[in-house]
């Protein structure tokens, strides 16, 4: 009994020690992560602007109603979903194809892989500016090359709503496909050779191996890369700001850009905070749905 009591005392002491040592980290976490989030949520409950020295007014969930009934919010949401819905599958497909091509070493393959990282390393502002020049209707190389290669008439890439969205997708794909490639390449290199040998012994074709061996084993990497891309696309700002500024009109305005404009052009703290909270919730829901989809299939 006394031994048991002694053990419990030691356990209590260890427990206390663990709490004491973890406490500073926990406090830092609360202050640095939960604090701003709570403050953001708190602000979202007020009519609060910095545009004029007006005292904040408690508004319950009025700002949420205002945001969710605002056509401009839904337009920005739609645009963000388009970039996500079109961009991620295209980037996943291209990333996988390139990763498969690079998975078998050949002379210069390492250099190519290293070069693939360049677009990811370029600051989004710089890549936005670079693509603005490339896509310029008058002197941009895109129209020139398309004219030479397929005889296409020059297009106003950034001046027409549909083409402006296509331009953002092109730029986003250029910048992020290498990231997908590199992650999948790492996944491919981790698949044991014996698995392929076993598949070959079983008489599997190249497509059969890809479908039944490679892709299932790459699933964790795919999940990771898609999740990261969902988060990145929700936050997409710099390239859109530079390339189209959300225009023409609001045809390419994304959620992040709208949040920025509401915050730094209109200085509406209440609505900006609401937009940020809604964006966070939407991001979590979409990520959850995706995970459920992936896990559900796994279970089956």
């Amino acid at each position: 009994m006394s031994k048991l009591q002694g053990n419990t005392a030691i356990q209590r002491s260890e427990h206390r020690f663990a709490i004491i040592t973890a406490l500073p980290g926990l406090i830092a976490l609360i202050v640095l992560v939960a604090g701003p989030l709570l403050y953001m949520f708190f602000n979202s409950l007020f009519i609060k602007t910095l545009a004029a020295p007006i005292p904040p007014q408690f508004n319950w969930f009025g700002n949420y109603g205002k945001v969710l009934s605002d056509s401009r919010f839904w337009n920005a949401f739609k645009n963000t979903m388009i970039i996500m819905g079109v961009g991620i599958p295209v980037q996943a497909f291209l990333g996988l194809t390139i990763a498969l091509l690079l998975s078998k070493p050949f002379p210069g393959s390492r250099v190519i892989v290293a070069m693939f990282l360049i677009p990811v390393m370029i600051t989004p502002i710089v890549s936005g500016f670079q693509w603005k020049i490339i896509l310029n209707q008058r002197f941009g190389p895109m129209n020139y090359l398309l004219g030479i290669l397929i005889g296409m008439e020059p297009k106003s890439w950034l001046a027409e709503p549909f083409l402006a969205m296509v331009s953002i997708l092109i730029m986003d794909t250029w910048q992020w496909t290498p990231f997908v490639t590199v992650v999948l390449l790492a996944g491919l290199s981790a698949i044991p050779k014996q698995v392929y040998e076993a598949s070959s012994v079983d008489g599997s074709t190249m497509w059969g191996t890809l479908w039944r061996v490679t892709l299932p084993l790459l699933k964790p990497m795919f999940t990771l890369v898609v999740l990261l891309r969902i988060i990145f696309i929700f936050k997409i700002f710099d390239p859109v700001y530079i390339l189209t500024g959300g225009g023409p009109g609001i045809s390419t305005e994304t959620l992040s850009l709208l949040t920025y404009i509401t915050g730094f052009k209109n200085f509406n703290v209440g609505i900006t905070s609401t937009l940020a909270v809604v964006q966070l919730i939407a991001m979590v829901i979409i990520a959850k749905l995706f995970m459920k989809l992936v896990m559900g299939r796994k279970e089956r």
Binding site: A52, E160, P248, K265
Partner: peptide, 23 residues
Amino acid sequence: IPGAAEYLDTLDIAVTSALSGTI
């Protein structure tokens, strides 16, 4: 007047949206 930046930005979006044919 105070808020001119916001008023004019809203107006600008209306003008460019209509001119781009989306509305």
